[in-house]
């Protein structure tokens, strides 16, 4: 019985992954492409939201500078639980081409907020982004989160 409730809750969550549109660099172009008609992220229940208060998933698409990192943290804090983060592209994963000798770029968004799925690529193709979202859906399906039970 508990297992079935988990299944239902997780299925609901993974099927309505509304993501915060958060594009800071060229990965944002691929993100837009993935959301547009050819790749159509709506098929997975993922539609973009322009406000963190309605978003379940933060797609960090692009380079994060130290000046931006504080805004990233604030947006993440404004999102309601349960919340997930996908780090998209080399810059968000590790700093990418700015890893060495850059004073202003954060060397990976995981230094600022916790990340669930990393997508490599510079920038990743929309297929890779869809793969990342499907991997996140698999992660969500394994969660044990019946109310009252420890997650």
């Amino acid at each position: 019985m508990v297992g079935n409730a988990d299944l239902f809750v997780n299925w609901s969550r993974k099927s309505s992954l509304w993501y915060l549109l958060f594009a800071t660099a060229c990965c944002g172009i691929e993100l837009m492409q993935a959301g547009a008609s050819r790749y159509d992220l709506d098929r997975f229940g993922a539609v973009f939201r322009a406000t963190p208060r309605q978003a379940d998933l933060m797609l960090v698409a692009g380079t994060i500078t130290h000046k931006m990192a504080e805004r990233v943290k604030r947006l993440y804090d404004q999102m309601p639980e349960p919340k997930y983060v996908i780090s998209m592209g080399s810059c968000a994963n590790t700093g990418g081409p700015f890893y060495k000798d850059s004073y202003c770029v954060v060397k990976g968004v995981d230094l600022v907020i916790p990340v669930d799925v990393y997508i490599p690529g510079c920038p990743p193709r929309p297929e890779a982004l869809i793969d990342g979202i499907m991997r996140l859906q698999k992660i969500i399906m394994k969660k044990k989160n019946v109310y009252g039970a420890k997650a």
């Binding site: 130290h66 990192a69 504080e70 004073y103 202003c104 954060v106 060397k107 230094l111 600022v112």
Partner: peptide, 18 residues
């Protein structure tokens, strides 16, 4: 001023590693 040749990178900025 980071583009000076003798600039020393800080270790942290607002708690985030530089």
């Amino acid at each position: 001023h980071p583009l000076r040749k003798d600039y020393k990178y800080p270790d942290f900025y607002h708690g985030i590693k530089v």
